[in-house]
Nucleic acid binder design. Structure first.
Lengths: 208, 208
DNA sequence: ACCGTTATTGTCCAGTTGGACAATATTGGA
DNA sequence: TCCAATATTGTCCAACTGGACAATAACGGT
């Protein structure tokens, strides 16, 4: 029998394995058996921790994004507003976004996942709005409606991520240029400032 | 035995059924048996027309989008450039976009689908670029780089579609306002022109 | 009237799936 | 030390999957 673990430890192990499989093969092809094999346990055990397959993938998505956004928020807090904008919009690692895209397509048929998705999307808009407010307060940007800016720029970043990761329409460099330009235009920031502030320091690992 | 049909007729019937199932349950849950039941034939017959499941869904996506874009392009050609921009960016019916989103998430694991997706995405960018060029030629818009505009605005529309359809972050009206504003700003069109040009006439049906 | 072509069916298969459950091993506390 | 709680296993199941295939029915041309 496999080593006996504490409840929380095992739970996180299962979630980590689920995320690794999602990154490789997508939400739709997560099977309890694959997850169990990856962890090294019997597949029946997963039902001891999660009510069913849908709840498992929803919990995995929620866990990953919660951790990632907390880490990102901490990172941004340590940067000046312009650098924070550059960091936030720099192209995210491919693994990351493929999971989001998969979640979008699964959400209409998985209520728990849809709820997590909506919650975290609003988190993203809030985090960006906060950075924009800091930039405005610092006199580095100006705008009439921060929330509208945040919503529009978040949508743009999502769309570019699709072009970059789901299709091979643009590479990371081009995507950054496009979104940086749009941010500068929208927030009346001097063109080139974001690129000058440097591309992103690595955003956190979350595959566990 | 079911009524005997011509090869092409049956083929289109199968594709239509596939699309209806995709719209209901997503690409990943298309099964040969469901498709066969929807058409009213034996599931073995599908293999007479398509090499396998992946080829079936890729062919269905390709067929649908090809028809839709041709019809859209014809519609746009009959409108003045500003009205054409308004029509192109008006929120697309939900069925439509859920299929695109599903395709994005399936593409990394279905090469035939990925090829169709990339091709049609470029079609979209080209169609929009043509409309922008008409607007510029008519003196109704100005820009430095039509292709960059087209790419950026297409990405924005995709991202907003995700917010509208995969999540319930914005409704169709808000999404239109956001994208209209972005188009006007980017192309130096007088604010409000697009909304004034009227929201879209219905874009074509494509579920057969 | 014949025949080759092909559209169509029904049936079989081996593999995989999520879930249920009884049996067992291990723990932590009284 | 004993017991209750719970972590863990292994096994079973009914449902469903894509695919293979031989048998058959309907067609179009000659």
């Amino acid at each position: 029998m496999a080593e006996r673990k504490s409840s929380e430890e095992r739970r996180e192990q299962i979630i980590g394995a689920t995320l690794r499989i999602v990154a490789r093969k997508g939400f739709a092809s997560v099977t309890l058996r694959d997850v169990a094999t990856e962890v090294g346990i019997a597949h029946g055990l997963i039902r001891h921790y999660f009510a069913g397959r849908d709840e498992l993938v929803a919990a995995a998505f929620d866990h990953a994004v919660t951790a990632e956004l907390a880490s990102d928020e901490q990172l941004l807090a340590g940067l000046d507003p312009i650098a924070a904008l550059a960091a936030w919009f720099s192209t995210t690692p491919e693994d990351h976004y493929l999971v989001w895209i998969d979640a979008w397509s699964e959400a209409p048929r998985n209520p728990a996942l849809a709820a997590a998705l909506e919650r975290h999307h609003r988190d993203c808009e809030r985090i960006l709005a906060d950075v924009i407010r800091r930039a405005v307060a610092a006199g580095a940007a100006s705008t009439a409606d921060v929330d509208a800016d945040s919503r529009m720029l978040t949508a743009l970043a999502d769309g570019l991520a699709v072009q970059a990761h789901a299709m091979s329409i643009v590479d990371a460099r081009e995507a950054d240029d496009i979104v940086f330009g749009a941010v500068e235009a929208r927030l009346a920031i001097a063109p080139g400032s974001l690129a000058a502030a440097g591309r992103a320091p690595a955003r956190g690992q979350w595959l566990g």
